[in-house]
Design a binder for these strands. Structure first.
Lengths: 147, 147
DNA sequence: TTTGCTGCAAATAGTTTGCAGAGAC
DNA sequence: GTCTCTGCAAACTATTTGCAGCAAA
């Protein structure tokens, strides 16, 4: 079974476990999130589903993302400019590398941040539950472009 | 000279260098940013200045923050829920520890992320310009409260 | 005197919500 | 048949912008 199939199963299973109804719209959203090609935005997801469900409402996308997020099956990558992106492939905190020109998001393989988390906990006495690490820069594609 | 006086001088000097007019409103905003007590939000800044300038407009706060940000003299800590916070004391990227209950923001002393930055650059071939590292958790005050 | 700044109000954009009908179970 | 979900439109909220008057240089 491929990775995205496993993720799709995990999401739909969580939905069933919590007695949420399985609607075609919900399945379509779960399917796109399970692939999360390019860390899609709500707009991206809506646009893709509209091909098969022309009446699909943006509100439905938002509501289902909130739901799936509450089940811990999608990671929200929020940006202050209101262009949030989603990752249903790796729904746990992990670093991102973001191109400030084309908005591409890449997941680098980095040694874990666990040491740093412990350091923060012992210094601040906070109970750390979560984190977010983003690097911003220019990708090779955008660097090689003129201007 | 105290730290916040130095920061206040740095900000006003940058304004003068770039030939921006020195208005009372601008100075008041620079003063609050130079202290940045508790990483204030736009709303916080506006409320504080309103005591001395009752006609101060929110738009003016926004415009001046955009300006000072463009001069590199304040760090914007954006949140997807649209409650951005500002740090004019340390206007360069640095880690934050954020209490998810009371929204307190603390600056921990951490070893630099330079090693990680190099690792990311060599792996992704991005030119990294910037980063953001936030830890989310519960502060000691909120932990000791009932419920 | 010139030019940029401020205050006000309206516009913007992403997201959320109320409601009535549709559909999953 | 019940109860949640969906689509639509309106509401919401942080932020930005147009404009006319004001004030720094």
């Amino acid at each position: 079974m491929s990775d995205h199939q496993k993720r799709f199963e995990a999401i739909t299973q969580k939905l069933r476990d919590h007695h949420h109804k399985i609607t075609p719209q919900r399945l379509a959203i779960a399917k796109i999130l399970s692939k999360s090609i390019g860390h899609p935005s709500v707009e991206d997801i809506h646009a893709e589903i509209k091909i098969d469900f022309p009446t699909m409402s943006l509100a439905t996308v938002y509501r289902n993302i909130v739901l799936i997020k509450s089940l811990g099956e999608v990671l929200e990558i929020g940006f202050p400019d209101g262009r949030n992106r989603y990752d249903g492939k790796r729904p746990y905190p992990h670093p991102h590398v973001i191109c400030i020109k084309c908005k591409k998001i890449v997941d680098p393989d980095l040694d874990s941040l666990d040491d740093m988390k412990s350091e923060v906990e012992s210094e601040t006495h906070f109970k750390i539950l979560n984190h977010r690490l983003d690097f911003f820069g220019i990708c090779t594609d955008c660097m090689s472009e003129k201007e």
